[in-house]
């Protein structure tokens, strides 16, 4: 049995988001949504985390940082791209410094749509991640 889905720990990385999605991610922790019910903790440390949540697009400066953080997470791990920026770059896509969505540097498992993504959608995404985590553990 996998305990991963009972206690997914999250690290949240802010790419070049407008902070809209960031605030929604943090809103999940508030009494209103309280993701700790599912054992989810925002841990802020790649070595402890199981889920990497990235908001905002990837730019040329943070590409290497995202890669490092990803590689510092222990397996099994999943990546959640929150917001349209993280999925494709959104309207920043053509900026001189933007590389595009998160999947241009690391593999992404779940995309959460929305600009900004709603907390309900994010929680939905996380629940989808839990299933994925279980599959990954079995592997």
């Amino acid at each position: 049995m996998s305990f991963l889905k009972k206690s997914p720990w999250i690290i949240h990385y802010d790419g070049s988001s407008c902070n809209g999605c960031d605030i929604e991610v943090l809103a999940c922790l508030t009494p209103m949504y309280d993701v700790e019910r599912f054992g989810i903790i925002n841990i802020g440390n790649p070595k402890h985390a199981d889920v990497l949540i990235i908001t905002g697009a990837v730019n040329s400066q943070n590409a290497s940082v995202i890669k490092t953080i990803y590689h510092q997470m222990g397996d099994p791990k999943v990546v959640l791209a929150v917001g349209i920026c993280a999925a494709s770059g959104n309207f920043f896509r053509d900026c001189y410094n933007i590389k595009g969505g998160v999947d241009t540097v690391i593999p992404v498992d779940i995309y959460v749509p929305g600009c900004a993504a709603r907390p309900e959608a994010i929680i939905d995404g996380v629940v989808a991640v839990l299933k994925l985590l279980e599959e990954k553990t079995k592997k």
């Binding site: 990385y13 440390n45 790649p46 070595k47 290497s64 940082v65 995202i66 490092t68 953080i69 590689h71 510092q72 222990g74």
Partner: peptide, 12 residues
């Protein structure tokens, strides 16, 4: 054991 580098906030 899986070797890794120290956490420097990703700025390794």
């Amino acid at each position: 054991l899986h070797y890794s580098v120290p956490d420097l906030g990703g700025a390794n």
